[in-house]
């Protein structure tokens, strides 16, 4: 398992210029919102959780396509599938690595972006925690979608259509927790639901994605 993670990490590090795109996209979307809607700090604070989440969701979508693309093209996936190492292990490594390079990076950007949107500083720890959990679910569910379309050309739109409906609960729970805290009520319920979602997705998705990938390799 460790050698799979090491390989993914090394590959991502060497392709880091491609991985910066989603982060720049995230920054641009959040920076443009105040210009498009209102510069009024009080109104922005109300919109902030939603803007942060939608931007993170769309940025993740941009990055999913690359998860299996190279390995499918160059035949590495075939080698894994016929080697005796379970595909699910490779997928788990890819999910963790994707989260590290995209989800965690988006999460760490959020305090800065939150400040730009006048999100109260007292809410930053909660925002970080919720985004970390939410982006983990994004990476995990995204792996299933990416595995399904790995063999297809120009699959970007299809991938988005497959994955966005599954991201909606995360979006609702994520913005829900921050909004609840913003309104001064308990945010434990949406937060625990999100954490449960993350655990479930992480436990099941590698197997589902492995079955999908097996079909994608098959030709």
């Amino acid at each position: 398992m460790m050698f799979l993670l090491r390989r993914e990490w090394l590959l991502s590090w060497r392709r880091r210029s491609e991985l910066i795109n989603p982060l720049v996209f995230n920054l641009m979307v959040v920076a443009l919102f105040p210009l498009g809607i209102t510069p009024d700090p009080d109104e922005l604070a109300v919109l902030a959780p939603g803007i942060l989440w939608v931007a993170a969701l769309l940025a993740t979508l941009l990055s999913l396509d690359l998860m299996f693309r190279y390995d499918h093209q160059d035949g590495s996936l075939e080698q894994v599938a016929t080697s005796g190492t379970p595909l699910a292990a490779l997928i788990l490594a890819k999910i963790l690595n994707h989260w590290l390079f995209t989800g965690l990076a988006l999460t760490l950007m959020s305090p800065l972006l939150g400040l730009m949107l006048n999100l109260p500083i007292s809410l930053m720890p909660l925002t970080l925690l919720v985004l970390a959990l939410g982006t983990l679910v994004f990476s995990t569910i995204g792996a299933i979608g990416a595995a399904l379309v790995a063999g297809l050309r120009r699959s970007g739109l299809l991938l988005s259509l497959l994955v966005i409906p599954l991201y909606i609960p995360v979006l609702i729970l994520g913005t829900g927790s921050i909004n609840a805290a913003l309104a001064g009520v308990s945010f434990v319920a949406p937060l625990s639901a999100l954490a449960a979602l993350a655990c479930m997705a992480l436990a099941l998705a590698p197997w589902v994605a492995a079955a999908a990938l097996q079909l994608s390799i098959n030709d």
């Binding site: 390989r7 090394l10 590959l11 060497r14 392709r15 190279y70 390995d71 093209q73 160059d74 035949g75 590495s76 075939e78 080698q79 016929t82 080697s83 005796g84």
Partner: peptide, 18 residues
């Protein structure tokens, strides 16, 4: 015990960035 075969296909299985 392990996978009984060693498969070499058409695609090289070589990552461009390794």
């Amino acid at each position: 015990d392990a996978s009984p075969w060693l498969y070499v296909g058409h695609r090289p299985g070589i990552s461009a960035h390794l």
